[in-house]
Design a protein around this nucleic acid. Structure first.
Lengths: 180, 180
DNA sequence: CATCTTGTTATACGATCGTACAGCAAGGAA
DNA sequence: TTCCTTGCTGTACGATCGTATAACAAGATG
């Protein structure tokens, strides 16, 4: 059901998501959504939570596969957003819709705040492991998050052609620039 | 009417925009929208077009006020996105909603492509005036646009506190980093 | 066996949606 | 004056929305 919600979010956008659309996508009766969720808003928030957790797990795996070097681990964390399984067209589309919904739906907004707090705290942890002497990690973390989100946006809305490799190169360059 | 559409887009998001909401916000009868527009999609697209033109004019003014130095003009173009009148909460909220809508509405998507093409071509023009020797301006323009959009997103969804001055500093730093 | 929860369907209700249309007020053209 | 366009209102229609609820199948529990 949550997978169906993500698919509807990706295909029909924030304006097209509805109880009936989700249940039709899941191949079940329209009434079933309210057996699992308090409402459509709750279903969307849970979908956001699941997606956020999947991304966090993918990031964790990418960091572990990078080995012991602190800088390599940090770069892996940043560039994993442009590799599978995170760099997925459907996931990016869902994300844009969720951004929009989080502006009008307080429940979605709360989940978004959680997801971003976790992402940024993971980022700050890795930066601190690499450069323990840096006093303030707030602005670098914000800057890196902004670039990643901006590149995701361009990938999803898709009129600015660039490759994942270029995105990774840019992210790495931005890291060196914003940390130095 | 277009101002009312922008206000609804900002306050109710992509999912809450409707003929009746727009006309109620404008203080007119619900039937009036279809006298001026072919439909709600057309009204939203026109709103996007007007907003894009206002932003373009504000950018042009910022560049002119920066004087003759090519680098100062380029920096003015980039940092104007974080100053009045562009850095406006309602405008940013409308923008996030329009991003989402452009993924499901072909007409809005077309306008978005126009607006971004114009923004990037203005950016590339200023870069070329500053550094005529650079061969490829595509990736730097994409990178700068991505950072600006990402910072806009964080400003609008607003759980990452940073000041406009910090945003300008980051944008300037990113420019030097991505051009060098 | 009877009962009770659980997953699921089907349907119905009121609200709201986009759209269509008839009508009215006003102003310029004849 | 009459007519015709234009800006705008009000309302009505069918579709779709979120939600509620009755019904049913099946498995667990007594």
């Amino acid at each position: 059901m949550i997978e169906a919600t993500a698919r509807v979010l990706a295909s029909k956008g924030a304006a097209g998501v509805s109880v009936r659309a989700i249940c039709a996508e899941a191949g079940v009766s329209p009434g079933l959504l309210r057996h699992y969720f308090a409402g459509v808003s709750d279903a969307i928030a849970d979908t956001y939570r699941i997606i956020g957790r999947q991304i966090a797990e993918a990031l964790e795996i990418a960091v572990e596969m990078a080995g012991p070097d602190p800088r390599a681990r940090l770069i892996a964390y940043i560039t994993a957003s442009f590799r599978a399984p995170i760099a997925d067209p459907q996931l990016l589309s869902s994300y844009v819709a969720l951004w929009s919904l989080s502006r009008s739906d307080p429940e979605v907004a709360r989940v978004r705040a959680e997801v971003y707090r976790d992402f940024r705290s993971g980022l700050e942890l890795l930066i601190r492991a690499w450069r323990p002497e840096l006093p303030d990690l707030r602005l670098p973390a914000i800057a890196l998050t902004a670039l990643i989100d901006g590149l995701w946006l361009e990938l999803s809305l898709g009129d600015a052609p660039f490759t994942p490799e270029e995105a990774e190169m840019l992210a790495e360059k931005w890291l060196d620039c914003v940390i130095a």
